[in-house]
Write a protein that binds this DNA or RNA. Structure first.
Length: 630
RNA sequence: GGGCCCGUAGCUCAGUUUGGAUAGAGCGACGGCCUUCUAAGCCGUAGGUCGCGGGUUCAAGUCCCGCCGGGCCCGCCA
């Protein structure tokens, strides 16, 4: 069931205004309705008279007065009266009725409050998908949190959602790590496997890059290598020694990759699986802590062995734009764009622009016959739509892959799949203030260390709390840490960078996950003490300005969630939760609940219940854990 | 060089989608509030040429054009 009193009023107000305008001036105009900035002016307002003033060549005031007088207020639910101020047509609500409707409907639908029905189609969200060669860092964390939150939002809107992770186990990165492991087969994996392998991978990468580069570039890799050597001297020294025995490490890596993709050499297969599965196990542990689970892990190798990439290749061949050079396949996208309108459309407009700003071809494989990431990605996309029959797929991938995602969509069109079914959910990176994060250099802040540090800080705080038992500390600290980190990674618009500082991410004060958790926990405390929420209450007791603000904010949850979807902006929900928490805290200062006189107490208890539901539901979507004590 | 993204308080960010009523929070600074539902809180003070310059409009942080600064992409890497 979906209840949304605010939307009811808003729609009725806008429709009614449109109708009045049509009756009075006989034309159609789009009517916008928004919250009024000052409660004294009313509740909802429309600036439509300004636009009419221009057309009718009259004063906005005159028009707004006329509109307001002609409005049929009785046909708008919860409406009390209308008036005109400064050219705006304002609607005053019967706040008692509106409050009652909002609180009753929120309590009635409970966990479903905030839901709407947009569509029942099948939607996949592919997210995280970090290469299994180093631990998840805060950048991958942003991906995971955005993806998971967006998937939760889709579920609230009726979509049948599945969360997928593409395990990139067959590219050069994975091969490089397997190569490093093959040089040190007896080295003992110490600590969490993804962390240990992360050092091994970065060291191997640095050593190989160092051999290839000269001058300043070489210096830079050397520097990264020395940083790693400080962290794990024995491992790095031995690895360097072993790699130096290899005349051509680059060729060895390539050979491993080729053998693995062919899938016939069982020894090689076992080597890859040992390493990538160990790292993936580490990832799963980290993601589990953040409350993130995937419905499926799609292994790149299996897509290859299962024939999905070959199938995609056949499709592209049929389109007539697949070509080959030195044994490497590529799609001639420029030629396709020149000849096909739909391809031009995908690539963004006229052919001149495409010529100047796009690479003319799209390579799918190497000369040695191995697939590039682009090749497997084309096959994976085919699998998503024809294997899994998804109606729509959101790829949560960094902004750096914007062009690649565009080319992928063009390739989809050539395979005969509607490219609009594939959406690149793009997000900006997390930047460290000083150094640039780089998995290949072993420079990153991992989610694990972030969680642990956050937990430590929370535990310090909990020491000063009374009424928290020793055995509860661990669980509370973990949940607060998760709340802090998920909030910090979701509350910035995806198209903007997140600047990582420990103080910002581990902020426990206002505008943070813990601030939201704290406000929620207090609603739980009050409800515990107040006992049952009364069946009946008199909403006319809810007259304080902060109470009215709070009721409005609660009522805004359904439309907030819909906006998150339409705009692909999960951060809007984080903002909402913070705003709601702020109002709840202010309400506590101003309005005692338990100690309030009879009548007021019941009404406020019901309001707290509704606020608790709204905030709790928002937190569930954001993955910020609920707590009864903190 | 070309394309895309970003620029709002000392710092980190909302507000730009659909132009609308006094540009909002947090951190940091300063000053108050715990015999009263959890002080991870609340109240107050200070802090703004909304990068710069034009334009459109009754109205521009928001739309258009130009510029400046930062980032990303333009690989048989992913």
């Amino acid at each position: 069931m979906h209840l949304d009193p605010l939307n009811e009023v808003r729609r009725a107000f806008a429709d009614n205004l449109s109708k009045v305008i049509k009756d009075l001036y006989s034309f159609d105009i789009k009517v916008t309705v928004s919250r009024v900035p000052n409660l004294n002016f009313g509740d909802l307002g429309s600036p439509v008279a300004f636009e009419l003033a221009k057309i009718l060549k009259k004063e906005p005031n005159e028009i707004s007065n006329q509109l307001s007088a002609s409005l049929d207020v009785s046909s708008i639910p919860y409406a009390h009266s209308s008036d005109a101020k400064g050219g705006f047509v304002n609607l005053k609500l019967n706040r008692k009725d509106f409050a009652k409707a909002v609180i009753d409907s929120t309590i009635k639908v409970g966990p479903d409050f905030g839901s709407s029905l947009i569509e029942r189609s099948r939607v996949m969200v592919e997210h995280t998908s970090a290469n299994p060669v180093h631990p998840l860092h805060v950048g991958s964390g942003r991906n995971a949190v955005i993806g998971d939150t967006f998937a939760n939002i889709l579920e609230k809107l009726g979509f049948e959602v599945s969360r997928h992770y593409l395990v990139n186990d067959s590219g050069r990165q994975a091969s490089l790590l397997v190569y490093a492991r093959s040089r040190l087969p007896d080295a003992k994996v110490e600590g969490k496997p993804d962390h240990w392998y992360g050092v091994l991978y970065a060291a191997c990468n640095c050593i190989i890059e160092l051999k290839k580069r000269r001058g300043k570039e070489a210096e830079e890799w050397k520097e990264a290598l020395e940083e790693l050597r400080k962290r794990a001297p024995d491992l790095v020294n031995k690895l360097e020694e072993e790699i130096n025995k290899d005349e051509n490490p680059e060729a060895s890596v390539a050979e491993l990759n080729k053998k693995y993709q062919e899938g016939k050499d069982e020894v090689v297969k076992a080597m890859f699986r040992e390493v990538t599965e160990a790292v993936m196990e580490g990832f799963k542990q980290t993601l589990e802590r953040l409350g993130i689970r995937h419905d499926a892990y799609d292994w790149e190798s299996e897509l290859i062995w299962g024939g999905w990439i070959d199938k995609a290749l056949q499709r592209l061949k049929k389109s007539g734009y697949l070509e080959k050079e030195d044994g490497a396949y590529y799609v001639n996208l420029l030629k396709a764009a020149e000849e096909r309108e739909d391809i031009r459309k995908v690539l963004g407009g006229n052919i001149e622009e495409i010529r100047t700003k796009m690479p003319p071809v799209y390579y799918l494989s190497r000369s040695d016959g191995t697939w590039l990431y682009t090749g497997t990605d084309v096959g994976y996309s085919l699998y998503k739509f024809e294997g899994l029959k998804e109606d729509k797929v959101y790829n949560v991938i960094g902004v750096d892959q914007k062009l690649a995602q565009l080319q992928l969509r063009a390739a989809m069109a050539l395979m005969g799949i509607d490219p609009n079914k594939l959406v690149h959910f793009s997000y900006e990176f997390v930047d460290l203030p000083e150094v640039k994060m780089s998995g290949r250099r072993g420079r990153y802040v991992t989610i694990d260390e972030l969680l642990d540090e956050a937990k430590k800080r929370v535990k310090d705080l909990l020491k000063e709390r009374v009424g928290i038992e020793e055995k509860e500390v661990e669980e509370i600290a973990e949940k607060v840490a998760v709340g802090a980190i998920r909030y910090a990674l979701i509350n910035v618009i995806p198209s903007k960078k997140v600047i990582f500082t420990w103080d910002r991410v581990l902020n426990l004060q206002e505008n943070s996950g813990p601030f939201i958790q704290y406000a929620y926990t207090r609603t739980r405390g009050i409800l515990r003490k107040a006992g049952e929420v009364p069946e009946e209450f008199d909403a006319s007791h809810l007259g304080e300005e902060i109470e009215i603000e709070l009721i409005y904010k609660i009522a805004e949850l359904p439309e907030t969630i819909r906006n998150c979807y339409w705009l692909m902006r999960p951060d809007i929900l984080a903002q909402y939760a913070n705003d709601l928490a702020m109002l709840i805290n202010k309400f506590y200062e101003k309005c005692p609940v338990i100690a309030a006189p009879k009548g007021v107490r019941e009404a406020r208890t019901a309001l707290v219940k509704a606020a608790s539901i709204a905030l709790g539901n928002a937190m569930d979507i954001l993955g910020i854990p609920r707590l009864d004590k903190m």
